[in-house]
């Protein structure tokens, strides 16, 4: 199962992801025209001043998704295969139960349509727009297993080097 993973230590807070997201979800899919469409946010770069860090916050498509569990109309559903939490705007009534239980606060409010708005993980794209746009690779898109395997490599190498050095 592929996920969008965040590496806040690499984020420089440039908001390229936010812009790419807005363009991708605009009618025109054009940067300049998209801005005039007053796009609604699905991704939020949060600044955390006490740690001088920026953290891109977007839907985690949780496996045990609270928003799906509480939705009274069935507007939020989870794809059994991909785990993507989908939002059906036609059934949504804008009661905001989902928004009030979301642990990450990433379900927004589409003020024109008066319904919820959230990350749909760019169904028309191979790689989500935010990930493609990130200049520092703070956002990556990959299999969770692969990513953690890659993470294990560095400490394993360090450990091996340490053992080798001390037994020499």
């Amino acid at each position: 199962m592929k996920e969008i993973l965040v590496r806040p230590e690499r984020c420089v807070g440039c908001r390229s992801c936010e812009i790419a997201c807005a363009v991708e979800h605009s009618q025109s899919r054009d940067l300049l025209k998209a801005l005039s469409e007053m796009p609604q946010r699905r991704l939020y770069v949060e600044h955390v001043p006490e740690y001088s860090l920026a953290v891109p916050m977007l839907c985690r498509h949780c496996e045990d998704a609270p928003c799906v569990a509480v939705c009274p109309t069935g507007a939020l559903t989870q794809d059994a295969l991909t785990g993507v939490v989908r939002h059906n705007r036609d059934i949504c009534i804008g009661c905001w139960t989902c928004a009030s239980v979301c642990t990450y606060g990433v379900i927004g409010r589409d003020r024109r349509a008066r319904v919820a708005i959230k990350c749909d993980r760019c169904p028309d794209r191979e790689v989500p727009a935010c990930v493609s746009a990130c200049p520092t690779r703070a956002l990556i898109y990959g299999e969770v297993e692969e990513v953690s395997r890659a993470r294990r490599a560095a400490p394993a190498l360090k450990f091996a080097q340490g053992v080798a050095a001390s037994s020499r």
């Binding site: 949060e46 740690y51 990450y104």
Partner: peptide, 22 residues
């Protein structure tokens, strides 16, 4: 206002993540 609620949840979650990194 729902935006105030999600906003504060989001910044709290971001803060937790940032604390782990630093």
């Amino acid at each position: 206002d729902i935006d105030a609620i999600t906003g504060s949840t989001r910044s709290r979650a971001a803060g937790v993540l940032a604390a782990r990194v630093r």
